[in-house]
Design a protein around this nucleic acid. Structure first.
Lengths: 223, 223
DNA sequence: TAGTCGGTTGACATAATTGTCAATTCGCGG
DNA sequence: CCGCGAATTGACAATTATGTCAACCGACTA
């Protein structure tokens, strides 16, 4: 929402221009939805005419595609960072999930992804095809290792898959409808409340992973 | 997608016309997103000119509002039906949640609600303000009763609130992004698979409710 | 059968948005 | 200092959406 008024023509490098435009577009998209993605408005935000945007991205669709690609890569990078082991130590599955959740839900990625996949038609692709699969693999290997060291039973791949799917689903659902839902439940919607919910959910997942004893009863949050 | 071509003017009652228009609009909205909500297209679907739609709904926004209201009421009716006790017997909390999930996620309500709340601006209202609150109350009372009869500890209201919120979030997330996510996870997306996931999730919630022992680590199983 | 109420229509007005293009001007290298 | 490439722009074209309006006509009633 920053507009330069007084000065003359500001000349940027192609990269800079593209970056600024994408930033503004992303902000508008996450705040206002696809209706807010108008070339003139974006241009005003960064102090450019809509023609300049067309110059840099060919077409409006080109802009959307570029936005989609960049968001995917950023998300991927953030998730990979979350997966990075602190120091050769095997990460905690729950913490990884927490981080993924946070990245997805908190920074508008959820809304962004939702808009993009749905504007671009439901027959989407890209965005995170292999990321989810990768995530499942990593988490599963962590669980298997935990199974070996601790006394937990070996989880099925399907179970791990379900967990990852659930976390992603909740992250998206929360990112998209969280605000409205909390309002409907008459609960606060500040960052603290959101974090509390995230933690509560994390414990739920944690408990499920810890209590994975196929033979005996499966519910005992011993800690 | 049905269009009448040959015949003359078809004259409907006001109600009929409204109903048909809303049906077509709903279909377009859930299938194509807000971009697909154009008066001409909707008109073509039901064999009316776009002027007729404006006649019945004042404006495009009036149509959207009416659509929102009708969807809310239908959703509410379905959820209330799910809450109805089979025969004076106290319903099972998990089953209720399952049903709510199914209603929300399966029939396009999720997408519909998402589009509506987001097109209408995030400062939404309506849609289910009191429904969620009501749901929380009902589920909580069920849990309290269960606590009295069985040996489960009394759950905190916050815990119940979180559960309901989680179920709603998953239902919305699944309805909106479920297809894409399952694709990304390389899992099938047929009704059976969706039901399996729903059941798995139901067990997770069930386990949480059953394993609710406050003396040790009640609402907060430690951090 | 005539008359009226209101659902229905087509032509038109209006506004907004993407896209095109020639011209402008900034910044850099020769 | 000049010239050139490239970013930037403003005017214009083309498309498309919502909304207005007068007229049309189908069904029901007196």
């Amino acid at each position: 929402m920053a507009a330069v008024i007084g000065s003359k023509r500001i000349r940027r490098t192609s990269e800079e221009a593209r970056r600024q435009i994408l930033d503004a577009a992303e902000a508008r998209l996450t705040n206002l939805g696809p209706e807010g993605l108008r070339l003139q408005d974006i241009g005003r935000d960064v102090g450019l005419s809509h023609s300049a945007i067309l110059h840099h991205f060919e077409s409006r669709d080109g802009l959307v595609k570029a936005l989609s690609i960049r968001a995917t890569e950023q998300l991927r990078a953030d998730v990979l960072a979350a997966l990075a082991t602190p120091a050769g130590k095997t990460p905690d599955a729950t913490q990884v999930m927490q981080k993924v959740f946070e990245v997805l839900s908190e920074r508008g990625y959820a809304r962004l992804a939702a808009w993009l996949t749905l504007e671009h038609d439901g027959g989407n692709q890209g965005f995170s095809q292999q990321m989810i699969a990768e995530l499942i693999r990593v988490i599963h290997s962590i669980r298997m290792e935990h199974h070996a060291t601790a006394g937990v039973a070996p989880p099925s791949e399907e179970d791990t898959s379900n967990i990852v799917l659930l976390v992603a689903t909740v992250a998206y659902g929360d990112g998209i409808m969280g605000h409205a839902l909390r309002g409907a439940a008459r609960r606060p919607d500040d960052p603290v409340a959101r974090k509390d919910f995230r933690l509560w959910f994390g414990h739920l997942i944690q408990a499920h992973m810890d209590s994975y004893f196929p033979p005996k009863d499966a519910a005992r949050p011993k800690a």
